[in-house]
Structure formats: C-alpha cells, structure tokens
C-alpha cells in the first residue's frame, strides 16, 4: 500500500513536469517570433520598447517573484503539517496574483489609450516594426495573463481542499504540483520582463 502511494506520488510529479514542458514550448513559439522580428527590426523594437512602462513591469516582476516565494513556502508548510500557515501563504500568493492582474489592466488601458494596439491608426501610419512589437507584446502578456488567471483558480481550489483536510502532511501532491505550475508562470514572466521592458 505504501509502495503504491509512492508510485502514484512519483507519477503525478512526472506528469506535472511533462505538462510544464508543453507550456514552455507553447510560449516558445512566441519567443521564436520575438527572436525573428527582433533580428529583422532591431531599431523599431528599441523605439517601441521605450514606450513601455518600466514601473509597471518592475512592480509586476517583484509581485510574481514574491508570490512564487509564498507558494514555495506553502509546500514547506504543508510538509511540516502547519495547515494554518499553508492557508495564509496560499492566500498571500493569490492576492499577489490579483494585484498583478490589476496592474496589468491599468498598464494595458494606458497603452491602448496612447494608441498602441494592433491595427491602430497610429501604427498604420508609423514604421512597420513597432506594430509587430506591440502585437507580440499583447499576445504574449495576454496568454501569460490567462495563465495567471488559471493559476488563481487552481490555487483557490487547492486552498479549499487544504481547509477541508483533503490535503495534508501525508498527501500534498496536488498542492505541490499547483505550486510547480505557479512557479512556471513566474518563470515565463522572468523572460517576458527583460525582453519587452528592458532589452532596448
């Protein structure tokens, strides 16, 4: 019986990692496009990149890194059986994620307000590379934002299960795997941040 549990634990771990690999390749396609268009339009990308709000980007980076810390700590907490702490840490992770999304909302609104969006009159008139930068930016951060949203949902479900006692020190693979997913969302952002906000 114990051996069977071990087997299932290791299987679930392998399974979630395989899933994370597919996520890496999903975003990989967008990074591939970024690389190609950066190499074709380095100057236009530089100009477009300077329009980005570094403040929002940096704040969101710090938020995600911090939320990742909380998620990692929640795994430690559940391993040590500190259920109260698990709930607090998960709550903190979710709050960070929500603030991230709110920031993103304001950031996008401001950019769209300035006329930076696909097919906008401003881009139809201007040099062609800049529009590509913004198209990629919206698609990449949009897909990422969608993953943040999914992560919020997932972590909420996990928190409820912890409270119901379905996840505990003896069986916490769901929490661990959800935390892994959350770290992946963070990882993707770690690359989005320099590529879109800093590189040029």
């Amino acid at each position: 019986m114990i051996r069977k549990m071990e087997k299932e634990y290791a299987g679930a771990k392998l399974g979630i990692w395989l899933f994370l690999f597919t996520e890496i390749l999903l975003f990989g396609g967008l990074f591939l496009l970024y690389a190609t268009y950066l190499s074709s339009y380095p100057r236009e990308f530089a100009i477009a990149g300077r329009e980005m709000h570094l403040g929002f980007g940096t704040a969101n980076t710090i938020l995600l890194i911090t939320s990742s810390l909380f998620a990692a700590m929640s795994v430690t907490a559940v391993q040590q059986g500190e259920i109260r702490k698990v709930l607090n840490l998960l709550g903190a992770t979710i709050i960070c994620a929500m603030i991230f999304l709110v920031n993103k909302y304001f950031e996008w609104s401001s950019e769209i307000g300035h006329g930076f969006y696909p097919d906008s009159p401003r881009f139809s008139a201007g040099p062609i590379g800049e529009a590509l930068f913004f198209s990629l930016y919206y698609l990449t951060t949009g897909l990422h934002g969608f993953h943040v949203l999914a992560g919020v949902g997932l972590l909420t479900v996990v928190a409820l299960k912890v409270r119901r006692g379905a996840i505990h020190a003896g069986d916490y693979v769901l929490l661990e795997n959800s935390a892994l997913y959350w770290h992946l969302v963070d990882l993707i952002w770690i690359f989005i941040f320099p590529l879109y906000y800093l590189v040029l």
Binding site: Y37, E44, D119, S135
Partner: peptide
Amino acid sequence: LLGTGLFDPSRGGDPIM
C-alpha cells in the same frame, strides 16, 4: 480576429514564419 499583422508582409510580418 484582432489583425495582429504578425504574418502580414504589408505590416512587417513574415508569412514564412
């Protein structure tokens, strides 16, 4: 749906991509 232009050469995109 959004007209992102990523593969549209008239807007700098590359259909070969």
